[in-house]
């Protein structure tokens, strides 16, 4: 059973804002959906198939790419060819 508090916590983890008046609706829907997902409990335990490959290395190659101007063109804020971001500290 998921509570309003759980939903608030999940929203925090997912970095998605949630209004207090939305909490009841989301809580109700999460419970309904997760109850349905509980069907997965009946899936027998079994080792998942694993692809027998790991760590395939190659040399770096330089290939044609977008220019800095093209890359920053969609950014809402730029400064001196760099992308602006909110405060981190």
């Amino acid at each position: 059973m998921i509570t309003r508090l759980d939903v608030q916590h999940i929203a925090e983890l997912a970095d998605i804002g949630i209004a207090s008046e939305e909490l009841d609706e989301f809580t109700h829907q999460f419970n309904e959906i997760l109850d349905y997902f509980d069907l997965l409990d009946q899936v027998p335990e079994q080792e998942c198939q694993r692809i027998p490959e790991c760590n395939i290395w190659r040399e770096d190659e330089i290939i044609p790419a977008l220019s800095q101007e093209e890359i920053t063109r969609n950014a809402p804020g730029t400064e001196g060819g760099f992308i602006r971001a909110p405060r981190v500290m």
Partner: peptide, 13 residues
């Protein structure tokens, strides 16, 4: 940050 809607950059991340 890189595209689309943006908020106030003075706010915390």
């Amino acid at each position: 940050v890189r595209y689309g809607l943006a908020d106030d950059f003075r706010k915390h991340w």
